[in-house]
Amino acid sequence: MRDRLVIMAAMALVLLTPARAQQPPAGPQPGLQWTEEQLNKVAHHVRAGRTLTPKSWPNGARVAVCLSFDPDNQSIALNRGNNAPVTMSDGEYGALSGVPRILRFLDRYNLPATFYIPATSTFMHPAMMEAIKKSGRHEVAMHGWIHEDPMALNDAEEEWRLISQAMDQLEKSSGKRPTGNRNPSWTMSVYTMELLKKAGLLYDSSLQAMDQPHDVLIDGRSTGIVELPVNWILDDAPFLPANASLPSPRLIMKTFKDDFDVAYREGTLFMLTMHPHISGQRSRMKYLEELVLYMKSKPGVWFATAEDIARYVKQESGTR
């Protein structure tokens, strides 16, 4: 009941102002006209709450490392109504060559990982799903129904339909109800965070306000949802495809390594986002392997699924 009231109150707020942030009126710079109060409402609708980095990680580890993979495969193109054969084949690569190679690598080092899977990818390539489940070490979590763009949809009812459907499908195909989310297209509508709360999720991994775990606030109130933040510079997609901005795996992995060094020194979280159709390519795996070997060479590194990290920080912080 209380949840429903909160949602209704939030929706009312949402309808009043922040919608303007997504559909600006006539002028190209509408924000220039907003009052202090309006600015705060828009900017603070969803924002970072208190940090949740624990005093120490399990077994005295200094840093938590999460290797996460988004097997988007064909979902982005299919959602847009594109089935051009070369585009479809590019997506299939993730399921047919990328994921198997990544799983062999994870098995070789006995590493856990989190797979954020658009629900439709699970039935488009069921063999991929079986392979991910096989070791029992990996987490399967949400990445939308078909990698939709919730901000562009801007429709709470439709978004809820897709979230519910995705949770059911992931539960059906993985055998476990997902507890975490990475929002598809790395966008959120103004409704998304409320809907994730309504869905009862433990954590989210889509925001980028800090580089350590934190609580998420909606309109200033704690949600209890743990945020494990991502960052575009710790993601292979902007850099490593052939026509992206720096397709040199050696140089990119050097950035990842430098970032890890600081995370290690600061004792927080290192969350890496990769895509099987990109990092699962033969010329990329070598450098991912080098990065992992480097991290393993340091004492006190805790490799864990995002779910295990979220549970731990929640338990340590007493967040309800």
Binding site: A77, R80, N82, D90, N243
Partner: peptide
């Protein structure tokens, strides 16, 4: 394939 190419391919099929 980059986002931009995907979008372009998508628009073509649209």
């Amino acid at each position: 394939m980059s986002q931009k190419m995907r979008i372009a391919a998508g628009l073509v099929s649209l």
